Amino acid sequence: MIVAVASSFVLLLSCFGNTDAAACGQRSYDPTFQSCCNGVINSKGSNEACCGTTPYNSTFQICCNDVLSSKGSNEACCGTTPYNSTFQICCNEVLSFKGSNGSCCGTTPYNSTFQICCNGVLSSKGSNGSCCGTTPYNSTGHICCNEVLSSKGSNGSCCGTTPYNSTFDICCNGVVSFKGSDGACCGTKLYNPTLQICCNDVLRYKGSNEACCGTKLYYPSFHICCNGVISSKGSN
């Protein structure tokens, strides 16, 4: 505690004696002639930037992940390596000749006009603009359901790996059924809510019964349901 107070007092005195002084960690320095790089004071010279704890001149050098290199015509970094993005491309820290490539597929550069990258796998593009897993496809004629590719036809929705037309069919927990006049699911079954009621995935005919108690039906007017047990309401 005493050492910390003493250090702060010395820093205060140093700064008080020099109106241009600034703090660099627990020490004072003159920004006109010195640089502070992550708590380390160095002579400034023509340097105006820091690379880790080392000052440097960004006109002649480049800092890539705290590694200093001569700049030359390089203006970008690939990991710790400087490069010229006009002629090279960096894909996941792997440098390659750029050519006509402007995109990356993993560590491989490619031209997205002629190729497509699907989950790290490069393929010829052709008319394909979408991916189904690692397979490219044309979404006009095909549909991808959970990485399973199928002909599209009139289908525009997926039920698990099965394509279906939601105008005519319905998907109930992975099972496709003809919709008809029914419009609701009870587990994997289809039902008409006007005539039936679904109690915990068990279908019951509704009749005058209007509520579920677990998987059973009861009359709320005359009975009470507590934790799946039906009891007479009485005067309660």
Rank of each mutant, 00 (worst) to 15 (best):
M1F: 04
I2W: 00
V3A: 10
V3L: 12
V5Q: 04
A6D: 03
S7D: 08
V10I: 09
L13N: 09
S14R: 14
S14M: 12
C15Y: 04
N18T: 07
N18F: 05
A21I: 07
G25L: 12
Q26A: 13
Y29A: 00
Y29E: 07
D30M: 05
T32A: 13
F33S: 14
F33I: 12
S35Q: 06
C36I: 01
N38Y: 12
N38H: 11
N42V: 00
K44Q: 04
K44P: 00
G52L: 02
G52F: 09
T54L: 11
Y56V: 10
N57V: 07
N57D: 15
S58P: 15
S58I: 15
C63S: 08
C63F: 06
C63E: 04
N65T: 06
D66Q: 10
L68K: 03
S69L: 03
S69H: 11
S70W: 09
N74T: 02
A76C: 06
C78D: 02
T80A: 05
Y83W: 04
S85E: 00
Q88K: 13
I89M: 01
I89G: 03
I89P: 02
C91V: 03
C91Q: 07
C91L: 05
E93I: 01
V94I: 15
L95K: 01
G99N: 06
N101L: 11
T107G: 03
T107W: 08
T108K: 12
N111C: 15
S112R: 14
T113C: 05
Q115I: 08
N119K: 10
V121D: 06
V121H: 01
L122I: 11
S123P: 09
K125G: 03
K125E: 00
S127Y: 12
N128T: 11
G129F: 08
S130Y: 02
C131T: 04
C131S: 09
C132F: 05
T134P: 08
T135H: 08
Y137V: 01
Y137Q: 02
Y137C: 06
Y137A: 07
S139E: 00
T140V: 10
G141N: 09
H142C: 00
C145K: 11
V148K: 02
L149I: 00
L149M: 01
K152I: 00
K152N: 01
G153Q: 01
S154H: 02
N155I: 06
G156H: 01
S157D: 11
C158F: 15
C159H: 06
T162D: 06
F168I: 15
D169C: 12
C171T: 09
C172R: 04
N173S: 15
V175K: 13
D182Q: 13
G183V: 07
C185D: 05
G187L: 02
G187T: 02
T188E: 06
T188Y: 10
K189L: 14
Y191G: 11
N192S: 09
T194E: 06
T194F: 10
I197K: 02
I197E: 03
I197W: 02
C198D: 06
C199H: 09
R204I: 04
C212V: 10
F222D: 03
H223Q: 15
C225L: 13
V229I: 14
I230V: 14
S232M: 12
K233Q: 09
G234Q: 12
